[in-house]
Nucleic acid binder design. Structure first.
Lengths: 134, 134, 134, 134
DNA sequence: GTGGTCTAGACCACG
DNA sequence: GTGGTCTAGACCACA
């Protein structure tokens, strides 16, 4: 079962954070078709958020065809977003963890790391796929 | 000179994106104290954004003591945010790039990668510093 | 509840006047931590000012850690700025009022009085604390 | 000869500060008709301000008929703004100084005092002249 | 030309 | 109904 976490201050709308987290979990295979999302009440009890906001997030996900709400029962995953084999992903994750250790030992804090990653990924994308954004 | 880029759709307020990008550049040493940020009008001419929004971002940065705006002249970097030596950072970036290549070869797209990174960093943080942020 | 008043013509930015008035009230204990500031819309309905301008003032105060805005609820005082006991302050105010009466009887108008006060306070400060603000 | 002082951060336009200070001096009799204001260059050499800004202030004062500029010579006071006898004013100033001492001994800082004064004067005005601001 | 400010009016996220 | 944000367009003070 996915566990939500909200970060205030980021300026990202809470409902968007939930949507994003579900999508992430779908991409990583942490959430499989058929699996149930926590009920609105469960989320509320754990994350300090307004029920309406949770509902809005679920509605958004349903609108995108990723989940399905069965009234009175709950919300269920409808579609997967995994692109690669779990094994490959696990291997990549393992290497990434090692890299993270190094970064931490080099005295970079989480935000430094995030900045470095964002910047490098961006640079990588530019090189990799110079898609014409006419 | 830093170059801004806006990503609509993310749900993140444009002015926050600018703030974030400046902070990132400061962390990566791409922006040094004394250096000038592009003028509001320059940003506007390149990024399709309202001058007020850019001003808002710059003002936010000024409030945080990171930049200083000198009316009639421009906005300048006041404080650095670099934590580690450029060499170390470069080494880390290099390794990260290699990892990114692998990930791409494993058919993960940018969003998969971002999801994997976010998830792994989060997991890493939990293990590393279980600080109680009561 | 604090009541704002704007003075055009002074050349002081309206949002700064609001900021100043809140700070004054905080110094005088007229505004206590936990107390709510009038909502943006309330201010607008009474003071002939643009909502954005009020927001700007409130945001400035929030940046200084004096108030806290809770979206969807309102803006609340977070920190006090009182330096002296209410009794002492009241005594001083009483004496000051008597002085004001005398000044008025001497045919000084408000602006004369303000000028005299500003000038005397300035002179007083010079004598009292010749701090070198190099 | 009047001595100007600029306070950044107040949000008051520098040229307005100069205008204001001249008016104050006129009200207090510190500047008499016929007396010369410092030349633009003199002001610039002491106050870190742009010559244009000083000129603007003087122009404003001339426009209000308070001073007169004699090209090539200087700017001279044309009109007085004193309302009361110097003796009376001196007496009031003396009493005010004593009040200021008390206030300082009561641990109020300059800004507290200014706040208290502004607030009390305002309250006083309300009582004294309930002029119809229809 | 630079940043700073204001108004007007609009939409959004949240409670 | 609350604050938060954005756009559009305008004027000002300053270098």
């Amino acid at each position: 079962m996915i566990e939500f976490h909200l970060e205030k201050r980021t300026g990202v709308a809470p409902y968007m954070q939930l949507v994003h987290q579900v999508k992430q979990a779908l991409r990583l295979g942490l959430l499989q078709p058929g699996e149930q999302l926590p009920t609105v009440r469960e989320v509320v009890s754990k994350v300090a958020i307004n029920p309406n906001t949770v509902s809005k997030a679920y509605r958004e996900l349903e609108h995108e065809g990723l989940v399905e709400s069965r009234p009175g029962i709950g919300t269920f995953v409808k579609k997967s977003l995994v692109n690669s084999s779990p094994d490959l992903q696990e291997a990549l994750r393992h290497e990434l963890l090692q890299w993270l250790y190094k970064a931490f030992e080099a005295d970079l804090d989480s935000e430094d790391i995030a900045a470095l990653f964002a910047n490098t990924l961006r640079q990588f994308q530019k090189e990799e796929k110079p898609t014409h954004t006419s």
